[in-house]
Design a protein around this nucleic acid. Sequence first.
DNA 1: AAGTAAGCGAGACGGTACGTCCGGTCTTAGC
DNA 2: GCTAAGACCGGACGTACCGTCTCGCTTACTT
Lengths: 196, 196, 196, 196
Amino acid sequence: MDANPAQRPGRRRSEASRQAILAAAAELIAQDGYGSLTIENIARHSATGKQTIYRWWPSKADVAMEALADKTDLQVPIPDEGNFAADLRAVLSTSFALARQPQVTEILRALMAEAQIDDAFAQRFRSQFLERRRRALHTIVDRAHARGELPAGVPPDTVVDVVFGTLWYRVLAIPAPLDDVLADELVRILAPASPG
Amino acid sequence: MDANPAQRPGRRRSEASRQAILAAAAELIAQDGYGSLTIENIARHSATGKQTIYRWWPSKADVAMEALADKTDLQVPIPDEGNFAADLRAVLSTSFALARQPQVTEILRALMAEAQIDDAFAQRFRSQFLERRRRALHTIVDRAHARGELPAGVPPDTVVDVVFGTLWYRVLAIPAPLDDVLADELVRILAPASPG
Amino acid sequence: MDANPAQRPGRRRSEASRQAILAAAAELIAQDGYGSLTIENIARHSATGKQTIYRWWPSKADVAMEALADKTDLQVPIPDEGNFAADLRAVLSTSFALARQPQVTEILRALMAEAQIDDAFAQRFRSQFLERRRRALHTIVDRAHARGELPAGVPPDTVVDVVFGTLWYRVLAIPAPLDDVLADELVRILAPASPG
Amino acid sequence: MDANPAQRPGRRRSEASRQAILAAAAELIAQDGYGSLTIENIARHSATGKQTIYRWWPSKADVAMEALADKTDLQVPIPDEGNFAADLRAVLSTSFALARQPQVTEILRALMAEAQIDDAFAQRFRSQFLERRRRALHTIVDRAHARGELPAGVPPDTVVDVVFGTLWYRVLAIPAPLDDVLADELVRILAPASPG
DNA sequence: AAGTAAGCGAGACGGTACGTCCGGTCTTAGC
DNA sequence: GCTAAGACCGGACGTACCGTCTCGCTTACTT
């Protein structure tokens, strides 16, 4: 078994190229938007061969997704403050702060767009990005559910849909930047009964 | 004033071509997905010249948007049943039924995707599609707001964001088709206090 | 019999349009060269409809040919000075003077070019332009032949070929403008034995 | 110095594609005439990409010129039989035989036509084709000039003009194929005084 | 040390679609 | 019935990228 990659003969993957490619992708997206991002441009700006990109990433969207992962700490902290309102507010605060950065916004929109057009990427996007963030929120919501803090007759899954749905809708459909007031309002809607 | 187009000399726009183009676009999207839709293919399948398409639509996304408008009655009925829960359920029912048709889903996803990538189209998409549907719901929500039926501290705009956000998120990010149960749950969340 | 065109019903051909078209063609050729001459451009610059051009001329080359005919008096005078040398010199002098005008050169080159590419035009070009000029020279050469002034064993047709051949070659293949010295040299070659 | 192309990195030019393109161009010209030759057709018939053609040739006329060069041995032999008449007849014999092949005629006419319409190509056509053939004849004529075999008062350049002029005129302006009798007559005109 | 196996930048390759231009035709309203 | 205007279908233009395929070179492990 070749589980240990160090054992195989041949030149090893160049970390310098990997980073040059991700950096070039990020810069090009910031400059001209994802719409005019091309593999050829990434290669040119990173002084890299196209083949190297095709060898390691299935599509330019995957390059963008990895560039985003590299640039931001996508680890989602799972707070546990004892009540749903506080936990939810903490998660929203983190998420909003992240999504508000213009370069992050641009990439998020592009990834969601590409997922609509390219089914194979959609799967990777869901499993590598969306599901991870869902899981973090799910933990909190499940806990609240157990404590009886959710609105009556609303399963945890739906709460998660509402939170991420509202967040994504604002990013995708509304030109104004994400507003922190929205976070408070979401808390009021979803965690209405702050137990005395 | 040249408001009356019949007064100008020259051949008039061909309604037959317009419909052939929209039909071809719709069919091609249904068959191969929006990702492989090209102007050239639309022209070929509609026995039409590319120039004719470029003359009347700014982009293939606009063709798709018009095809959607032609195919579905996008007029949004504004119910008035006297209470928010019933009104909201009626709107959701209509919207879900529409968005559940596979061909409609496919086009909706494509339009939202294109709007992320092409800013000029994004503006047209918002003003010609998103805003219209927002306005319908807004009427209902404003009415509820006046009656004091909204959750405390939640302005109508946010309610609209939550409704459409959840709907779009399910369409864009979740592979499963839209579920009618979700409509009930949204009503429970947003119109909780059925006045005694 | 409809020999009298004034008797037919309907609007008569517009002489103003005819001249506007020829003038626009001449001007466009002078400006940008025949290579970028298009029917559409002629129509635009002459404030005329494309249909009007297609109705009266088989191709843009025919427009150019008529523009040339209108602009220059293409009537070829047939001198008769009593000896071949003087007659030939007179014909060459007229022809060179005509072909030396830059705008005429440009059109001549274009017509000969088009004749290589479009067989139908080639026939019209030969019968309406080349043959006429050949006939003028032929009269002179035949007369010289009868007087025994041609080189021995050289039929009149060949003399005509040599004269026009040399002239056209200089126009088509040599960037320098036509030189009057050439006329003298042709006379020396073809009418060498000025009979004492 | 990068004179050695083998030193550069990257895939090398494909000789197979080069030949397929030239062959396709030659065949298409023979079939449908130069007038309906398009880059797109060449690419299709040679199972080649358009870009490959644009990469290596400035225009379709240059493709045709190279196809001609490849197909015919354009090397012009320079005979030296001791007298102008014999040398000239030898050159004419070779040239006529070449120009009489229908496929060669077609290309020659097309190249000369294109040179009238495209100035940049005209320069290449002169330096890569016309001038070479002129030089061969010039050698012979200069030699004759030194021996005093030219008509009095006629410089070598003019003799060359007359020879090629007549040849080209017959090809371009006269529908009949080149006649060998013409060669004899040209010799009689230009090398009349076979010195005793 | 030689041999073998990968990865690298570079760049040509066969394709496909782009958006534009023009050809030649058809359809208006107006003279 | 001609005219200007202008839309129509069709097709080639020259360009941009796609994803693949050589190249010569470099870097690593294996013998």
